[in-house]
Design a binder for these strands. Structure first.
Lengths: 219, 219
DNA sequence: GTGTATATCTCGGGG
DNA sequence: CCCCGAGGTATACAC
């Protein structure tokens, strides 16, 4: 990784046009060739950047970075304050826990948590407009499409409504109803869900993990 | 801005739980206190981070970063290879062009580009589920809700459909129809729009800018 | 490759 | 403050 501290101006032309007036900034060039220009504030997002794959053409006072899509980043260097390089090697990568995929796993194994008597037919059931998180059968014999989110917002309700509409046209599945399951469901999403005939269920993630670890300890 | 190259392990507990095994990485600390941990690849996104506002508690071999929401980032330093600091000063900031706001401005001033005889009533017309980009009146006297996007995708059509449904319930506005205007509209979005009775219009952004600059030169 | 859904999204604006 | 929408979203995954 190369780190350059420099007084620079920057121009980007691509999906939009953008310009950075002259100032001191950090230029970060990673091993894969991607370039990021950071100021001394503002979270982790750089002011400007160019992702790999790209090509860097470097002269004393100017870097021109282009990519195959025709985007172009031009960095004009007025003064270089520091220029260092460190070989970091491959990173073993981030280990995550607690995202939607895990919530889906937990619920797929325990669909009765969502609704009494619910039985799983299939996870990630494919439709021609995308995958339904859980396809289930209710105690009364209806098909139930379950959409799982960490945070339940309007988009998720729309997504589920599209699936239910599509699935309900399949005579092998009809009648189909929808259940929207999330750790937290926003009021707007609840209102929209109700008007679409979709049931909302708020799920206790920590409680589910508790149950999971108890089950694991039994075996 | 402080830049540290170090062999480290990292743990994050907050909105999720995440762990980074021991490896060499860049630790970036900005003037506002935010911390980002970068590997030597993977675009501009750090492996792990903590945004301002936060507090950093630093000892020889460990940094603990906590924020008011109760999130916690723990960095264990096994070996520090480099530790430098540079004062960059305030950044004048990015100047952008070509985003949705500008497209909306251009169309608000020339609604006839969207549809012959269209007249603007109001920009950012507020409804209880959000703002409509342009509210217009057609030559035939209907109300027309216009949703403007740079790239027209399914989400935008759903959003517009919600607005039209809501506005059509207002007797002062009814009948209301929708027009979906974008530089480029994806086939799926067109199909969905058609099934919702929404008209699609593809807008020539560069052409509009041409017209704008010609108009400016006249005055 | 396109299409779809997720994200510790980030960021900015409005109430 | 939260809510909402846009983003050069980036990223992963299925088809």
């Amino acid at each position: 990784m190369r780190l350059v501290i420099a007084e620079c101006t920057v121009d980007y032309e691509g999906r939009l046009t953008a310009h950075l007036p002259r100032a001191q900034r950090l230029l970060m060039v990673k091993a894969d060739g991607c370039v990021a220009i950071h100021s001394d504030g503002g979270a982790y997002k750089p002011l400007n950047w160019m992702n790999a794959p790209n090509s860097v053409f470097e002269t004393e006072s100017k870097w021109v970075v282009v990519n195959p899509k025709g985007e172009k980043l031009t960095i004009t260097l007025h003064e270089v304050i520091s220029d260092t390089e460190h070989a970091l090697g491959e990173d073993p990568g981030l280990i995550k826990d607690g995202v939607e995929a895990h919530l889906q796993e937990l619920l797929a194994a325990r669909p009765w948590v969502i609704e009494d008597g619910l039985e799983l037919i299939r996870r990630e059931y494919q439709t021609d407009i995308g995958p339904v998180d859980l396809l289930c059968k209710s105690e009364a014999g209806e098909t139930v499409a379950v959409e799982i989110k960490r945070r339940g917002e309007i988009d998720g309700v729309e997504q589920l409504a599209r699936y239910v509409e599509r699935l309900d046209n399949d005579p092998r599945l009809a009648p189909v109803r929808g259940v929207f399951a999330a750790q937290l469901i926003k009021p707007q999403a609840k209102t929209l869900a109700e008007s679409r005939g979709i049931i909302c269920v708020e799920v206790d993630y920590d409680g589910l993990r508790e149950i999971e670890s108890r089950e694991l300890r039994l075996f």
